[in-house]
Design a protein around this nucleic acid. Structure first.
Length: 273
DNA sequence: AGCTGGTCCTGATGGC
DNA sequence: TGCCATCAGGACCAGC
């Protein structure tokens, strides 16, 4: 479920609700998510308070005096406030109890992760999961020139390159299709065949698409993290994603679906070249 | 049975 | 040959 915009909306929700709030208690029910939840985590967090809530790609990063809590929502993870005394549901794997309430991680598919990076272990950006990530799409570092330089010599399709996250992070399967549609580029085009002009258009399309999605989520999810972490996501109207056979919103031709690396790609044969 | 919004890891390939 | 970067596929898992 979560792509970068969703994670960013979660981050903002957390920033508004748990920044500088003291952790009273931590419950780990499923020790095995994508990786084991570190056994020392409850002890490290309890009594501390997050002094910053950041995001890198789709990783949520909560800074504590003792180190960083790293959370990834995988494909099916959500963070919500549990009402007082609320019964556990299936796949409620992890709780952080603040004075204000219990923040609960639910993740049916368990592709998500909850990890700890100790302050003594060096700078966070050197963490193996973060060290080789591409640039942030909404940062000034990401533009057409950068994208053009990074795609030289790359024979993979432009969509797969976006998805890989090594050039630019946070572009998941949905927004890859949406951004390429916006830029008028066929997803199967080899990355090195996308010229400087089109790289500029694509970089702009990625930024615009992500920003619009964040705005949609942010405006919809008033008390985010507190009720339904999904509503913002489904408000988003896609141009091509999941619209196979339906008319393109621009030219009216049926949207096509193909498969790249076992992932569905949606595109318009007339609007994208 | 086959699909699903992520991404790390492994092993194969290819260029220098 | 060895080393590197690149690339494809498998793996994890539950729900619909």
């Amino acid at each position: 479920m979560p792509e970068l915009p969703e994670v960013e909306v979660v981050r903002r929700g957390l920033q508004a609700s748990v920044l500088n709030r003291t952790v009273r208690r931590v419950d780990v029910r499923a020790p095995m998510l994508r990786w084991p939840v570190p056994v020392e985590l409850p002890q490290r967090l309890t009594g501390g308070a997050p002094s910053a809530i950041e995001r890198r790609g789709k990783y949520l990063l909560l800074r504590f005096d003792a180190g960083w809590l790293i959370v990834h929502l995988g494909m099916s993870g959500s963070l919500r406030w549990a009402r007082a005394g609320q019964a556990l549901r299936a796949h409620d794997h992890f709780d952080i109890e603040f004075d204000a309430g219990v923040l609960r991680l639910n993740d049916p598919r368990r592709f998500g992760a909850v990890l700890w990076h100790d302050a003594a272990a060096g700078p966070l950006h050197a963490h193996p999961l973060l060290a080789s990530l591409g640039v942030e799409p909404l940062s000034p570092d990401f533009d057409g020139d950068m994208l053009y330089a990074a795609t030289r010599g790359r024979r993979v399709s432009i969509k797969q390159l976006l998805l890989a996250g090594t050039v630019v992070v946070g572009v998941g399967n949905i927004y890859a299709s949406e951004s390429l549609f916006r830029a008028g580029i066929r997803p199967t085009t080899p990355a090195h065949r996308v010229g400087p002009q089109r790289c500029r258009r694509l970089a702009g399309a990625i930024r615009d698409t992500l920003r619009a999605a964040i705005a949609a989520g942010g405006s919809t999810l008033r008390d985010f993290v507190s009720s339904d972490g999904q509503s913002g996501y489904f408000q988003l109207e896609c141009n091509v994603y999941d619209r196979a056979g339906q008319p393109c919103r621009v030219c009216g031709k049926p949207v096509r679906v193909t498969r790249q690396q076992q992932r569905a790609t949606y595109w318009c044969p007339t609007c994208q070249h």
